[in-house]
């Protein structure tokens, strides 16, 4: 058995899970997440992400294998490991009839916090997540995005060292998603280890330093975001021009392929290993003024799909 580093927030070894109906959700997972990391766990629906989170949070029983949270086994050090953990599940799982403030204060009680301390913590996180004004509202009156934020506030009320979020921004509008990203980044900067599952690959690319891709119950990729993105051989850049173009720009280098999109934009495909300064120089020489440039494809999405295929 491999040794487990004490610097890991989570260490998973040989984790398997076969459900009562015979479905094998996990087929021997080994995974380490370092302390203070912002970690992405990606995978298609049914890959096993939620099963891993379920086992860490003890809602699902592992068939075999071991999990340590900050060096302590979740099976033998139940109190210590649960105290370190905050879980934000995929599905809404608070009472629809309780008031927003009561939900967070009650959760504090389960961790041994009560009275003024519980109220202060509830206020702190409800304010941070823009829910303080809603504290006396019944939770069913909240919008979808607010409900997700309420689950984050609830998971943080005991100030865990490790926060696990299972698709926290699913169905959340772009503006709100961005504000949640900022909040999570601030939390991570302040020392909280964060593990995130998401279907928004842009989200994982923006937030996470390390990544694991799981498919059919197995880890198919486990590396840093930088190394993963470096694997991409080619990229396609889209340029918007200030003036109308009659023909596509030309390049001497055979590696650079250029196609017109419309009279004001064109795309260039080139190796990721090379710089793009030469492209700007060549465009200037041809008298083409560039108004804007963007990456055509979501790079992580391409790698994600390629990992699943492999």
């Amino acid at each position: 058995m491999q040794t487990i580093s004490p610097k890991n927030a989570i260490s998973i070894r040989g984790l398997t899970k076969t459900y009562a109906n015979g479905f094998q959700a996990l087929k021997g997972i080994d995974l380490d997440v370092k302390e203070n990391d912002f970690f992405a766990l990606l995978g298609p629906n049914g890959a096993g992400k939620s099963t891993i989170i379920g086992i860490i949070s003890t809602l699902v029983r592992a068939s075999s294998g071991a999990i340590q949270v900050f060096g302590q086994d979740v099976a033998t050090h139940v109190y210590e490991t649960k105290l370190s953990l905050g879980i934000v599940p995929q599905e809404i799982n608070f009472s629809q009839f309780e008031k927003v403030g009561d939900i967070v204060i009650t959760q504090a009680g389960y961790y041994g916090l009560r009275g003024e301390l519980a109220k202060q913590r509830a206020e702190k996180y409800l304010r941070k997540l823009d829910l303080w004004e809603k504290r006396d509202n019944r939770s069913r009156m909240l919008s979808g995005g607010m409900k997700r934020r309420l689950m984050i506030a609830r998971a943080l009320v005991h100030e865990p060292k490790l926060l696990i979020l299972d698709e926290p921004t699913a169905g959340v509008d772009i503006e709100l998603r961005r504000s949640m990203w900022e909040f999570l980044q601030e939390l991570n900067r302040n020392g909280t280890t964060i593990i995130l599952t998401t279907h928004y690959l842009e989200e994982a690319e923006s937030l996470c330093r390390n990544i694991a891709i799981i498919n059919q119950g197995q880890i198919v990729e486990n590396t840093s975001m930088r190394k993963l993105l470096d694997k991409l051989a080619r990229q396609t850049l889209v340029f918007d021009t200030c003036d109308e173009l009659a023909t596509a720009p030309t390049f001497e280098d055979a590696d650079i392929q250029c196609n017109m999109i419309d009279s004001h934009s064109f795309e260039i495909s080139l190796s990721t290993s090379r710089d793009i300064n030469g492209i700007y120089a060549a465009l200037s020489e041809q008298g083409i003024l560039i108004r804007g440039m963007r990456n055509k494809t979501n790079r992580l999405e391409e790698l994600f799909l390629s990992s699943l295929k492999n």
Partner: peptide
């Protein structure tokens, strides 16, 4: 009702 709404998970994930 706690099971049905899944809010029993609030307690089950805690150290209670």
């Amino acid at each position: 009702s706690n099971k049905f709404q899944r809010c029993i998970e609030e307690i089950l994930v805690s150290p209670v």
